[in-house]
Nucleic acid binder design. Sequence first.
DNA 1: GTGATGACGATAT
DNA 2: TATATCGCCATCA
Length: 133
Amino acid sequence: MASPTDTQDPFERIYQVCEQVPSGQVATYGDIAAIVGQGCDARTVGHAMAALGSRAASVPWQRIINRTGGISTSGPRQRELLEEEGVAFDDKGHVRMDAHHWAGPSEAWARAHGFTVLPPRDAPAPAAQLKLF
DNA sequence: GTGATGACGATAT
DNA sequence: TATATCGCCATCA
């Protein structure tokens, strides 16, 4: 049996999750893939973004970046859009993931649409903290 | 059906 | 932090 509100199209589900990313925040391809699940891979999300087509006007594709916080698209267009939303970049052109990383959709929303909740990413960076003293 | 390509991720160095 | 290598999955020739 299929899940409720089953869009059947993996790309369509990816677009749905992307639309949940609020303005001023960014999400990584891996995060979107983890939420969508169903064998969706970070690369699959990239393909979906490349196949946006006319959907580019409805999906905040600019808020989807790679894990390094860098922009994979060609041209400064994506950075322009993000800066318009208040996203800060460092001198190297990387997004400040520590300040703009999207924590994921609401658990209620995820369950209502049959998505997976993003795992707790509260990694305390052990090495840094241990070496602090 | 197979091989190559790609808006990637994680690990190792 | 940057680079190199491998793995993963969907699309195209």
